[in-house]
Design a protein around this nucleic acid. Structure first.
Lengths: 253, 253
DNA sequence: CTTTAATGCGTAGACCATACGCAGAACTAG
DNA sequence: CTAGTTCTGCGTATGGTCTACGCATTAAAG
């Protein structure tokens, strides 16, 4: 009969255990030539170079000079590997909140940090997330995000909700910008030319009677200019933080 | 030499053309036994029943009693089919803004309508979106969303940005709730049991010294109760609309 | 009736993840 | 030193995916 582990409860997946360094090497058998970090690094290298779609088990194995099936000794499945890739891809949180700044400045910096990571590694957006965060780096980001709201009168549950709101916004905005860039590459259009082309296409498709508001937007030339996407990001983030500020004011009063 | 189409510019994909009803059947050749709407309906039926992962060309063809390759006469690629599935899956916009209500009530209703669609067809969240909306129903939603902001003093560009903000929020929230549900199904845990189990796992993993804020959240029992997810949705939406309200107030003054 | 063009679809190729089992390496017990 | 144990690497094989290509059939036009 197999001995049950201490009080491990639902027994977290082996890939997660190794991410937390909870795996001691058994003293028998040959030295492993492959290690989980080496595999994850190779996979991240492939994703950085050729995108997430290029990350196949055989491609990662080739990157390591190993055979495809060798990887399965170390990661349980491709999904396991993806989870570990996300953890490594985000990297460590950029640091705790600065005590001399207020919550808004700190949370803004936190949001921009994730924004920058996602801009540098767009493939992170394409990994289907499997559940709530349980890997070390991910929780590090969450810890530092919570720290931004430390001085506020918000209850813990609302801090968490706000963090979810902000990180969701950052992910969503990054996804929009990224799929726009991919779309322009796929269509073979210059990145600056895409929005005007999109506007022209819309103008040709829509009936001004059926779509009056949309026609008005088009007429205002909203899509003609290619504004720096950072402005759009700042706009949305400021709206959300305005909303948070209103809540804090209400909870203070 | 092929005759160029009127002034069609970048020549939109055939699947999109058919979605706008811009495709007349050529007078020669055998009657098509398959039609694009029939194929899209079948694909939606498969996705509704067994999820997006079950939507393969062969499965859809089987659903129609046709051969796999027969589909490719009508849709250019699987991605084309997915685009059409999204358009059909969302369905028509639930209707224009009610003039007797203010922008906030109308926009709230608009957000809830998308929320309801995504709850009913979670697979819509898993379709990788390829670019800005160009299909009829999608633009119908956008039109009605813009209509909600009609009476406000916001410039057209900001109306658009706010719409993007709200729809992004709705999608993101739906995605979180959905992947939580999928995660609990995959782990074989009761839906109500998942968050407590998650909390217990975190408590076992994290070091209170390294993760003080997270530990405080755990200690507050935030994860112990399984609150109705609609409350979470309402909370975030109200934060965002508070932010919009602040902007409108500023633009009015 | 002949010509023309579009439809349905069979074949085949290039990928993919991964279940299974075997050869060999490295350590421990005697 | 030897035998036993156990873990690593990996070859083979299965069943799935999308889709390029080409052929036979069908229906309308001239």
């Amino acid at each position: 009969m197999a001995k049950t582990k201490d009080d491990s409860g639902p027994a977290l997946p082996p890939a997660i255990e190794s991410a937390w360094g909870l795996r001691e090497r058994p003293p028998k058998g040959p030295r492993p030539g492959l290690t989980v970090p080496a595999i994850v690094d190779a996979a991240v290298r492939v994703a950085d170079a050729d995108g997430l779609a290029a990350v196949s088990m055989s491609r990662v194995a080739k990157e390591l000079g190993a055979a495809t099936m060798a990887l399965y000794r170390h990661v349980g499945s491709k999904d396991d590997l993806l989870t570990l890739m996300v953890d490594a891809g985000y990297g460590p949180s950029p640091g705790p909140a600065a005590p001399e700044d207020d919550w808004r400045a700190n949370l803004t910096r936190w949001a921009w940090a994730e924004h920058d990571v996602l801009r540098q590694r767009p493939w992170l957006l394409h990994v289907p997330i499997a559940g709530p965060p349980i890997t070390p780096q991910q929780l590090g980001w969450m810890e530092d995000g919570l720290g931004c709201l430390d001085g506020t009168p918000l209850p813990e549950s609302e801090k968490m909700s706000i963090l979810l709101l902000v990180t969701g916004y950052v992910r969503n905005e990054a996804m929009l910008v990224n799929q726009l860039a991919e779309g322009s590459r796929a269509a073979g259009v210059e990145p600056g030319e895409l929005m005007p082309a999109y506007g022209a296409m819309l103008a040709r498709l829509i009936d001004p009677v059926r779509f009056p508001a949309l026609t008005r937007v088009l007429g205002a030339g909203v899509l003609d200019q290619d504004d720096p996407p950072d402005d759009e990001f700042t706009f949305g983030l400021d709206r959300i933080l305005d909303g948070v500020e209103a809540l804090i004011a209400r909870r203070t009063a």
